[in-house]
Design a protein around this nucleic acid. Structure first.
Lengths: 197, 197
DNA sequence: ACAGAAAGTTTCCCATTGGACAATATCCGT
DNA sequence: ACGGATATTGTCCAATGGGAAACTTTCTGT
């Protein structure tokens, strides 16, 4: 054995850094100044010619105002979308994938558009969840409660949200929610660095 | 130079690995066999005497059946309120910058968190806009109408949105909106590749 | 089109570090 | 105490992190 499978993580780091730097719109030179590394070295890293050790990667992440884990995960995404997508209150399409399987009902609010950065849903929390599972995925999530009271748990924090309350959190925190009385609905928008694939 | 600001991440990796290995109840030798590293080296890593490069850490993570990010993540994963921000309906902070200047009122729904990918707002559309200006910025935007009827214009398209309607569009399209009768409110979430700086 | 500047890439090089190996130390049970 | 198992440490060589600067490419402006 020991075929020396090249670590898959390493090859993606560079791309992620480059992508993030592009997002911030800063040059290699500025990043070099911010991190203390030479621009030549940073260039090599972005092209996967060199792999920085943890500490250095951490410094780079800090300069890019990101978390180190963000740079280790997912590859790049590209593309762009033009246009505009409307979902009328009456024309919502229920999302099938696992939807009710977990005890949740949710419908996409922009399913007729692909390659978008955010994923908006309308969530309906049931009063009871038999399969008491947590969600846990990459990216970030925003939720705005429309109706009902939601008992929400993210990480170790548990709180009750009422209509009009909103919450923003790192989606890697295991999270779940249930309606406290009857039913509850919320607008949920997720951002995921990972494209749909 | 090189005052060697010790990266905070590095010192925790070893502890996390040791902790995880203890969880699995396996010996250094077994881990050595699984990863291909010498047990001596692994010992040094656990005692923060050495810091493995990304690829090696990845192999270790695989052998421990964990994700590499778990090993980097601080051991205090449970407990802290980090990564989560709640804004109660009664505690919204109005956003000052330009808010009413454009004839719009809006409040941030996650202002106590920085470096986030999405920017959620609660928008209030007035019945009349004297300065009939367009918004036009980078990124993408999602809007969910809560109350009232909104005449919305994006690019060349003009449409009327009612409560429960939602729209997703490229924010580079010049866009604007106004309430048709009385007032209208909407949840707006924007994604912008470039943070404010 | 051309010159100059700015952003990015590559070459060369050395100081640092990864990581194996063997020796030593610690912790059991009998 | 002894023997066996697991963990730590010193030594050392090969590998690599990472700088300096030359080089190339892309963006200006005129």
């Amino acid at each position: 054995m020991s075929g020396a499978a090249p670590a898959p993580v390493e090859s993606l780091i560079g791309a992620r850094i480059a992508e993030r730097r592009a997002e911030l719109g800063i040059t290699l030179e500025r990043l070099a100044a911010a991190t203390g590394f030479s621009k030549g070295y940073l260039s090599k890293i972005e092209n996967s010619r060199k792999v920085p050790p943890i500490g250095s990667l951490s410094r780079i992440a800090a300069a890019l105002r990101t978390d180190i884990t963000q740079l280790l995960h997912t590859p790049a995404e590209a593309g762009e979308g033009g246009g505009l997508s409307v979902v009328r209150a009456g024309e919502r399409r229920p999302v099938v994938r696992g939807g009710t399987a977990f005890g949740y009902d949710y419908v996409s609010l922009a399913d007729n558009r692909r390659d978008k950065k955010m994923e908006p849903f309308l969530f309906t929390f049931p009063s009871q969840i038999d399969k008491y599972v947590f969600f846990e995925h990459d990216g970030e999530e925003f939720m705005f409660v429309l109706s009902g009271r939601v008992e929400w748990q993210a990480g170790s924090r548990r709180l009750v949200l009422e209509p009009g309350d909103s919450i923003y959190f790192d989606a890697r925190l295991p999270h779940r929610g249930r309606a406290l009385d009857g039913e509850a609905t919320a607008v949920v928008v997720t951002y995921s660095p990972k494209p749909a694939e």
